[in-house]
Amino acid sequence: MNHILVKNLSVNYKNFCALKSVNFDVNKGEFVAIVGKSGSGKTTFLKALAGFVPFLGQVTIPKNIGMMFQNYATFAWLTVSENIAFGLDGKNSKEQIKIIDEHLKLAELEDKRDKYPAELSGGQMQRVALARSLAHNSEVLLMDEPYGSLDAYTRDKMQQWLLNIWTKYNKTIVFVTHNIEEAIFLADRVLVLNDQKFVGEYKISFTRPRNESIKFSPEFNILRQEIFESLNQHLVS
């Protein structure tokens, strides 16, 4: 069943076309990664899905979505628990406390409850941002290079953490990255975005739960090579 359906989506900025008649669909609970180089339209695509930019075409997406950004967008003036509670309108304080506790545990930040984002590491801030969306019960998570500013070690840890969360909550995820390895490791399907349109689609059939060792398998390397070529072919032509 399609959870997100996009038909002939085009986005035009003042002087240039950021997306050219793109088609896209995601099933409920599916993890889709989009890879593309800078300027390929990845971020614009997510913004269009979220309704942040005007577009032509048709986008069907659930109302309740969460979005994660490379710069975290955790509210600097709210503590970790206040950040998580931000989307809990209409819940009484008892329910709120329960949800906050549950999501602090999920984000492994129980001891940081009253800290401000500036007191956290990049990985911790990104966990707050995700916990905030999960607490809000977002059905779809749009992630715009969320681990782009993290070091390699933290990035690996965060990928594993995200997979655990995804397995537990079974959310629909659209994950944008320029890192091919990250896309293959995380996703059920990898789409290649180039020159403002999708130019390749790869089904990733590694069994789950996945662990780091698959990154060293021959199948992983073949996929990496194919996606790499797909990305670069279109740049040359």
Binding site: G66, F69, A73, F75, F86, D89, A129, H136, S138
Partner: peptide, 11 residues
């Protein structure tokens, strides 16, 4: 990004 995040979290 702050405004976008907030808009997705509250009406």
């Amino acid at each position: 990004e702050f405004l976008w995040s907030a808009k997705l979290l509250t009406a």
